[in-house]
């Protein structure tokens, strides 16, 4: 079995600050990390590898620095890593991203057929959750999103049963391979990288593909040109001109503060409680 995992390198959003005056994002010094949701996808693939002796290939589209994300995946136990990198990919929206990634997956498939593709639920920067469905649609694979559990995998019948989170409950779905699965956070707990794998990851030769290597000929489908959406403006939320009315009383005692607040609230907004 061959499993491909899509991982994206993202800025660690917990450390992003917005410049208070210019409203621009201050990226300097913000560390890049593997999109946290993608680690759940990777771990799920590695668990299948352990059980079925599958081969796990990780794929990342991004600038040359995104190599670090792939090395991290190798350290956890992935077998192969492909960095899809080309100036022509810059400025891609989700439609152009899924085009490039699916072209690369087709190329991988030529070498060794891909049975399962894993992706994260969404990223923490673009945060659209659109790339997984996009890839599945382009490759005509069965799409299983928001998967909270892989119940069974039958390699002979090429069938997989999963739990998919939906509104108000869980759908138990059965489908045939090849399929694309996006996993929910919390589906598993990431393993620790072994020392051997860490060394192996350091020495491993990544496969680096340009658009030509991925056999992408039509440049109108990738990067900025291939993106139907465009950001027309970025701005700060309008501050409310509000400033909370701070409740004060002579005693300053909790009992008096609470009584004053409740009386005020219920006389001005009688229907809130």
């Amino acid at each position: 079995m061959h499993i491909l995992v899509c991982i994206k390198q993202v800025p660690d959003s917990a450390q992003i600050r917005v410049h208070p005056v210019t409203n621009t994002i201050m990226r300097q010094g913000v560390p890049a990390i593997v999109n946290p949701y993608d680690l759940y996808a990777l771990e799920e693939a590695l668990r299948l590898k352990d059980r079925y002796r599958a081969r796990v290939t990780v794929l990342c589209m991004g600038p040359p620095q995104a190599e670090a994300a792939l090395r991290k995946a190798l350290a956890f136990g992935a077998d192969e890593a492909i960095l899809l990198t080309d100036r022509a990919f810059a400025g891609a929206d989700t439609l152009a991203t899924s085009y490039a990634l699916s072209a690369a997956i087709r190329q991988v498939h030529q070498g060794l057929p891909v049975d399962l593709v894993f992706a994260g639920k969404q990223t923490i920067d673009g945060d659209t959750a659109q790339v997984g469905p996009g890839i599945a649609t382009r490759l005509d694979m069965q799409l299983l999103t928001y998967v909270s559990k892989i119940v069974s995998l039958d390699l002979t019948a090429r069938e997989i049963v999963v739990h998919r989170r939906s509104e108000g409950g869980v759908q138990v779905l059965k489908t045939r391979l090849p399929a694309l699965i996006t996993v929910l956070e919390g589906i598993n707990e990431m393993r620790f990288a072994s020392l051997t794998d860490m060394f192996r990851a350091e020495r491993h030769r990544l496969t680096i593909w340009s658009k030509d290597d991925a056999h992408i000929e039509d440049v109108t489908k990738i990067g900025l040109k291939g993106s139907p959406t465009a950001v027309s403006k970025v701005f700060a939320p309008t501050p409310t001109n509000r400033r909370a009315e701070i409740i004060e009383t002579q005693s300053g005692q909790p009992v008096d503060l609470a009584a004053t607040l409740v009386a005020k609230l219920l006389s001005r907004h009688p229907d809130v409680a």
Binding site: L95, T128, V131, P133, G134, T137, E167
Partner: peptide
């Protein structure tokens, strides 16, 4: 932007080759 809506919109926009703004 529910689990159903995001799943469906992502596929349909890809087939239609059009833009989709999320959330």
């Amino acid at each position: 932007a529910t689990t159903l809506g995001r799943d469906l919109a992502g596929s349909v926009a890809t087939t239609l080759k059009t833009g989709l703004t999320a959330d």
